[in-house]
Design a protein around this nucleic acid. Structure first.
Lengths: 199, 199, 199, 199
DNA sequence: AATGAATGAGGCTTCATTCAT
DNA sequence: TATGAATGAAGCCTCATTCAT
């Protein structure tokens, strides 16, 4: 890569990072282009060389982060798939995702701040080995079918589980409420088991 | 009431309604005072006779609606309390609240749009017969104690239930996903029972 | 006077007093009609029953106060005129006016705040026994002629004296600088004597 | 200097000049930002690239002008100091300052319009060869001590002189009253001599 | 005569976007 | 490519004035 091209990527990265921090702190609407370029240390005009406007930046930003975190989680999952029952695999998926967010609280807060609906349905990831975008609910339903699990209403049960995890892990990770994640996890697993057994 | 005073209330009401619709459609940040007064059909200066600024209006608006809907739900609850076991009473509370929101989808969408965190913890209501403000979680925990229910971890179990209801009923009421509320309810009750039995 | 007429005068008085205080505190430009009627305890519309606008009120206000204070000072002067030489009479006039302001510091501050030019030329009073309006300089020059005082340039000398008194007595009365009025007065008289002897 | 930087200084200068004229004509309070940018021939937003608000502009404006005029006067004084007695030097100072204002009547009117108190105490200048800010009174008192002049009350006498000059030179310069400056000056010097001899 | 709600012109300030350098 | 000065539309808020009651 030429020095110019490198420099270009660096500028873009700086802008991404600045915007990420600011969107997290103040939300997208209350962050100005000025805020972003000031923090990135580039000129105002430069912003428009990389992005059309704030929304464009926001889109690219979320896609970048969502893919990053999920790519990691999904790769780990492949390694353990063959060792598990379906129920165990579901638990593994939940754990991987929740742990991934726990390692990146900032992202968790970012999504929560800037997405008005269910965290796990907000994030669509490019599934490895395909061009298709899937969200967590679809991934979990896949597991059901692959593992031939018997539930009366897999769609609804899985939906309930996904929403429950999304709704509660945010508070646990970010605010340690009702408990820190490590202590909360057993309750979460118990709840998931209860839901799978009765769903 | 004099004609002037009536007219004044009317103006305030128009402003409330205009703001409510607009906040719902576009969110608070993207709604301007001009939008509000245009829709309300009053002059710009009039806005400032009734509210200090947009945030003040937002505060008054949410308090108004939250109290309205919960006042109703809580009154109904008093009537059935003596006929129930603790578990049944929990179900009743959930039903009353969910039904209340189902009757007022607009409010449900409004809260979801403009509150960045857990719906049921966002709303604090003035509990009838006291000046104290409580949220749903606190109300449910009260029930536990009053009914002497046996659970290993009432706080956490109740927390899980509250978050689950909040997370899923929004989609069911507003988008009929994964099912319309009427059809979804049995699954919700099953889930709650499973959680109480195992929590 | 009928009760209605009395009440009317009372309202006007309240408005005058409120405006006076506020103009003194914040200056005319930064005082709003709202400020005035709030402090006067009358309705906003009432203001326009008594005055055309703020400027009209300001004009009426200054005339009221200026005449009040000078009427007093000039009456006293008549009593001592025949006992004095010209020089003594000049000192008497200065003393009466300065003492009058010292008794009404508020007025002194009011004028200083709201008049951008020489205090003593700002104030034109209706001289008793005539409809003519005169200012202090004109009154002093009269004294010269009446007392047949010998000065090379009475007009300029008197002008210098008038400006000197105006410029320094404000600070002495309001801020006690460079000295409280009582202590400053002898220096002022010495200065006036020096100017008269050499002018 | 680059073309852009030059242009920037030009814009600032235009704004300063526009504001100066308008503040002089209408006073600070009655001059709007719109007035200023219209006259300067720049866009409204441009104003805020150079100044925080109107007050900030006013501050910078007065400091600019006060320093300009006094820097000149004080430099001239250094040249004549060694040739003078104390009394002569006092006269020189008065002459230099008064002449400086006479050359810049606009500044004189500007200060008179926008400063509510004694002209010469309003203006604090950065004395050459120090970071200290002094006003005329302090400068004159310095002269007293340096020249070992004998007066009973130097502080009060100097105060009287300073106020007298401030109060009368404005009218002489701007309105030629009671006489044009050139003709008034001898009387002013006579008055100052009289005050120094008797103070 | 008195009220005070209603008005809307007019002020201040912010900020996304453009463009000459 | 990169800059950042300049722009002006668009937002917020104030306040003198009117007018129905």
């Amino acid at each position: 890569m030429g020095k110019a091209a490198e420099n270009k990527l660096l500028k873009e990265k700086k802008l991404f990072e600045a915007a990420y921090d600011l969107f997290l702190q103040k939300g997208v609407d209350r962050t100005t282009i000025d805020d972003i370029v000031d923090r990135a240390g580039v000129a105002k005009g430069t912003f428009y060389l990389y992005f059309n406007d704030k929304l464009d930046l926001m889109d690219k930003l979320t896609h970048r982060h969502a893919n990053r975190i999920f790519a990691e989680a999904i790769q780990q999952l492949y390694k353990v798939k063959h060792k598990c029952t379906g129920e165990e695999y579901i638990h593994q998926i939940v754990d991987f995702i929740v742990d991934a967010f726990a390692k990146d609280k900032k992202l968790m807060r970012f999504i929560n701040k800037n997405v008005s609906y269910s965290i796990f349905r907000a994030i669509r990831v490019t599934y490895p080995g395909s061009t298709e975008q899937k969200n967590i609910l679809e991934i979990l339903l896949n597991v059901f079918h692959e593992f031939n699990m018997r539930l009366k209403n897999p769609e609804i049960t899985m939906y309930i589980i996904v929403e429950l995890v999304g709704a509660t892990c945010y508070n646990s990770i970010v605010y340690n409420e009702p408990l820190p994640l490590k202590e909360y996890k057993p309750y979460l697993h118990t709840a998931i088991d209860a839901l799978m057994k009765n769903g």
